[in-house]
């Protein structure tokens, strides 16, 4: 190891390690709390001192906190909303990227403005709406995963801007050539653009997924029945009802929630690195 190595590479590692410590310490705390049998605020520290699975066991055995059920609900909501959001956004992004039509610019701007309005502020109106919908079609009312998903699907066009940006970087010649070969607009979209846009679809999918899995404000209003709750509102209820005692159970639930997301992120890492910006720079 030469001095030069230290100056040019070692320092980079040093910086990286500082960032790693910063990133990891809070996560370690959660891990430590999850495995600490006492599970209180006072007894928990960053470095795990004791090891017990009692909190994980209680997650799967307490009927007042049906964790597996919450997990299932969350998976359903996340999957449904993510798929709908990415698909609708991709469809619209295709129109905005490839077609020239009246109101295109206005439409894009309007989309942006509406997206910036926090849906939460319209919560009273939403509540009334879902109540009415539930009276008419009980499967879509309050305390239903379907009704709650519908509300979140109001943000179906949230990813249009990002996907459109990516579509813009895919050379038009590709689809023009296909059209010459007799392909319909649908074929161009599904068979040519979508496969090419896989990185951005993965990224926007992740963004949507992360947004949905952490949503608890609306969930706490729309999902009050224990069995209809999502992880977010369920876990929030656990920690909110008794912050000092339920830290352990909460942390165990948090770990179980975060684990699949972390794995998904690791799997899709290469897309995130490339997906958001590669096209824009190439332009």
């Amino acid at each position: 190891m030469t001095v030069r190595w230290w100056r040019e590479v070692g320092l980079r590692h040093a910086g990286g390690l500082v960032a790693v410590v910063f990133a990891v310490v809070p996560v370690l705390y959660v891990v430590s709390a999850a495995f600490n049998p006492l599970g209180t605020v006072v007894s928990t520290d960053v470095i795990p001192t004791q090891f017990s699975l009692v909190h994980f066991r209680s997650l799967f055995s307490d009927p007042a906190r049906p964790f597996p059920r919450w997990l299932l609900n969350t998976v359903i909501v996340c999957a449904a909303v993510t798929v709908v959001q990415v698909l609708c956004s991709a469809l619209a992004a295709y129109a905005f990227s490839r077609f020239r039509f009246k109101g295109r610019r206005g439409g894009l701007l309007t989309l942006l403005l509406i997206q910036m309005f926090p849906q939460f502020l319209a919560v009273i109106a939403l509540f009334t709406m879902i109540t009415e919908l539930g009276d008419a079609v009980p499967a879509l009312g309050l305390n239903t995963i379907a009704g709650y998903s519908l509300v979140l699907m109001g943000g179906a066009l949230a990813q249009v801007w990002l996907i459109k940006g990516y579509f813009d970087t895919i050379p038009r010649q590709l689809d023009e050539a296909a059209v010459v070969d007799g392909a319909s607009h649908a074929t161009v979209f599904f068979k040519i653009l979508l496969p090419l846009a896989r990185p951005i679809l993965a990224v926007t999918g992740l963004l949507a997924f992360v947004g949905v899995i952490g949503e608890f404000l609306l969930a706490s209003i729309f999902l009050t029945d224990t069995r209809s709750k999502t992880l977010a509102v369920g876990l929030y209820g656990i920690i909110e009802s008794d912050r000092s005692n339920n830290l352990g159970v909460f942390a165990a639930g948090a770990l179980m929630t975060a684990l699949p997301v972390v794995l998904l992120f690791q799997y899709l890492q290469r897309y995130i690195v490339g997906g958001l910006t590669s096209g824009a720079v190439k332009d």
């Binding site: 990133a23 992360v210 952490g214 977010a232 876990l235 929030y236 972390v262």
Partner: peptide, 12 residues
Amino acid sequence: VLLLPYAIPGFI
């Protein structure tokens, strides 16, 4: 590793 904070749901 640096991805961890982003991957853990925010409210947690």
